[in-house]
Amino acid sequence: MIRLLLAVLLGVLALPTLAQDTMPPAPYAYNQLEDPRLEAEASALMHTLRCLKCQSQSIADSDAPMAGDMRHQVRSRILAGESPAEIRGWLIARYGDYVSYEPEVSKSTWPLFAVPVLVILVVAGVLLRRLGKRRNEGDGAGETA
């Protein structure tokens, strides 16, 4: 009886796995390209593309079927002669900046790049003024002495 209950319980626990397909992965999902140079290019690109299903992994790190299908796209496009930048552009045209882990200057991200430069300029300005003041005071002190 306990065994039966346990079996039913385990069966119910395993239900979510039914929500995955049982199809074999796409040809280039788990197979590397033969040319090591091309595979290195593809791999570098795959590490900077976000898995859309798992959200905090790159497609190189994810075992989600959709990530496999995205790896297949990347590898087969590299094999067909497309550059990594073109493939990234193709995906961004479909999913927005979200799909790329590579920081890019765009309409919504430019403050991220501008603010540090601004802060450094302000700090440099303040420092120069203060140091300048102190030197002047020092000079003044020297003169009186």
Binding site: L52, K53, M66, D69, R94, Y95
Partner: peptide
């Protein structure tokens, strides 16, 4: 669509 080809081409994520 056995390898989600068209799904990716139209920007669908699930």
């Amino acid at each position: 669509d056995r390898i989600s080809e068209v799904q990716l081409a139209i920007g669908s994520s699930g």
